[in-house]
Design a protein around this nucleic acid. Structure first.
Lengths: 352, 352
DNA sequence: ACGTACTTGGAGAGCGCTTTCCGAAGTGTT
DNA sequence: AACACTTCGGAAAGCGCTCTCCAAGTACGT
């Protein structure tokens, strides 16, 4: 007769605390205490309650619990993309890039043992951002990990303004009092510069990422500084957008302007792959004619031929650390804002 | 004075429905109606309510809402890994593989416009599985997308038993009445076989994935069948585990046993990358000496040199479709169980 | 014996929201 | 003008859980 509100066609009403209490012959409160392992419960009752739980097949309702405890056991991973919109193909590219997976893997390595789940959120429009912040204030998630994307994103600021525990992976483009984990990008670029110079390269160019990404700028700055220190006052530069194609294009442009190039630092491995293609097309052998150093030490670096000498970016470790930082922050909201900077290392392979 | 229950240090109490009602001078119920766009509300009141919402900065509390509506606006993506355990490095590899990202990207392309968020769950142990199912029955998520991993996973069965809307990506290893989206793996393998034969290859081998993955078995079966049809009764076979290294090893083994190999079908691009390396080491040119066809058309295929001729696996589309299927299922739980099989296509590049 | 201090379990008040149930007002019909 | 019928807004009952009170029970000191 009942029309059936029906999200579960089979499943009758699920047992509640109340049911368990009835079976065990105690009050709801007592069951709650037992379930949550609060002491001050007579061992005998304790056992009766657990028996009743077994009998009824009781599982606590997380939602109801969260409503009152203000804890959800969830952390949000927000990919904030202030520039593009809902159906921008950019997001597709983003997910296909190993970057995303490595971050998730690193986060999960910490979150999973802690029994915390990850909720993925992508925000593009202003409205989505406002809404996300609203939801977070309500404790939809206990905290948030923000993945920075190109552009000057207002989200970090919004988050700190309302006091939501947050940690960024990659420092914010604008100064914001937020926790973050980042890589010493300058150092990484220096490593590449030093190696290329030591190898004896005379005309060394760089293929950089987009100008509005802090990490990208840091790599450019670090590289230039180091090159200058080695007496190379000027470095031919072409920029791409971290995709393979853009790397190929950039390399061609570089080659056209400076045919004598014998060394190149590429700001990420994917672009390096493209650059490799362009070099091959131009008849240059790597590393014999042109030495190349990539950045990230992604799986692409090993896959490339020749295998890429590259700056290792310990992304998984960084993601894991950001998760730890967030968890600590959630436990102690008064914790002072901190940042952790990782030092990159150079991984030597065939390309340089 | 109040000790402060304190997850938000700054944020006072957030405005509730009650507050909005007070400001607007109506009852909670009316505000609720307006917010949820239920008709039968006087346009004038309607406006007053929205004004009050603006004034107070009210944002509905999703948790509280979900508790009563039994709808969360969340879909769980569960990566069920019945074989390995919490700290198994396997998961790290899994996330780093583009497979994961492509799936997420495809899912989000549908989920995001629908305003639904994705919660990532990894379950390994029996206990985690039970708990997940319990949470799902309580409506922690409106439905679940299951990513199948190696092994005979009990999860799909558990899910259908309790009537949770679920869709698998990749068909279940054991027959289970569950919705799924899959690829016609046999057809894909046939495509590869046909191409290699037409190209004039005489001794064609295969590098397969692990034996307990349905997709992997299908590829083997499809390849063998097609080869047999072309008169090749026997196909040298070596198996790997979908990683690049395993592909390299497998190729070496194959070469050692059958030095005359002039064609090889590799069950995924990553292994193909490894196989390429092994071939180069052995002094064989691709495609001149040995033609190679990969599988997936992942970014690795384009990155490889020579670029890989490969069977295109429309994973994003499949993931998107699975999301659509799930959403439909959630809206109409009585929907009959269905599966969607995608046809792969061969993408011609340099390697064959 | 009484008072004090501590332990233990129950009652009940919420958490913030939706939704059914009603009564009051508005509309049209004969 | 009286009736049935529809529209609209409010009161209130929960959703399932936690947790603060409070009362009763137990142990101890004087």
């Amino acid at each position: 007769m009942t029309a059936g509100t029906g999200r579960v066609p089979v499943g009758e009403r699920l047992p509640t605390l109340e049911d368990v209490a009835r079976v065990a012959g105690v009050s709801r409160a007592t069951v709650s205490r037992v379930i949550n392992g609060i002491r001050n419960v007579d061992p005998q009752l304790h056992e009766m309650v657990w028996n009743a739980v077994g009998q009824t097949g009781y599982v606590p309702n997380r939602l109801a619990r969260s409503l009152v405890t203000r804890r959800t056991g969830t952390v949000a991973l927000v990919v904030s993309d202030s520039e593009s919109h809902d159906d921008d193909p950019f997001m597709g590219r983003f997910f296909a890039d190993p970057y995303f997976g490595r971050v998730v893997g690193g986060l999960m390595s910490v979150l999973r043992p802690a029994g915390i789940q990850l909720a993925l959120q992508i925000v593009g429009t202003e409205e989505q951002r406002t809404r996300l912040v609203g939801d977070l204030r309500h404790g939809q998630a206990d905290g948030v990990i923000v993945l920075s994307l190109p552009g000057h994103d207002p989200l970090p600021r919004m988050l700190t303004d309302v006091g939501v525990p947050a940690v960024m992976i990659g420092r914010p483009a604008d100064p914001v009092p937020i926790n973050y984990v980042d890589l010493a990008n300058e150092t990484g670029a220096s490593l590449a510069a030093d190696h290329l110079v030591e190898r004896g390269c005379q005309l060394i160019a760089m293929i950089s990422g987009p100008a509005d990404v802090p990490a990208s700028n840091d790599r450019i700055a670090g590289f230039r500084r180091s090159m200058a220190r080695h007496g190379h006052a000027w470095v031919p530069l072409a920029s791409g957008n971290f995709t393979q194609e853009s790397g190929e294009t950039a390399m061609r442009a570089l080659l056209a302007e400076n045919p004598g190039i014998d060394g190149v630092f590429v700001a990420n491995d994917l672009m390096a792959l493209g650059a490799l293609l362009a070099l091959r097309d131009a008849g240059r052998r790597v590393p014999d004619d042109v030495a190349m150093v990539g950045f990230d030490d992604s799986s692409a670096a090993v896959a490339a031929s020749p295998a890429l000498t590259t700056v290792r970016h310990p992304l998984e470790d960084m993601a894991a650390e950001s998760a730890r930082l967030l968890l600590a922050r959630i436990d102690d909201p008064s914790m002072r804002i901190s940042s952790v900077i990782y030092e990159p290392t150079l991984v030597l392979r065939q390309s340089a």
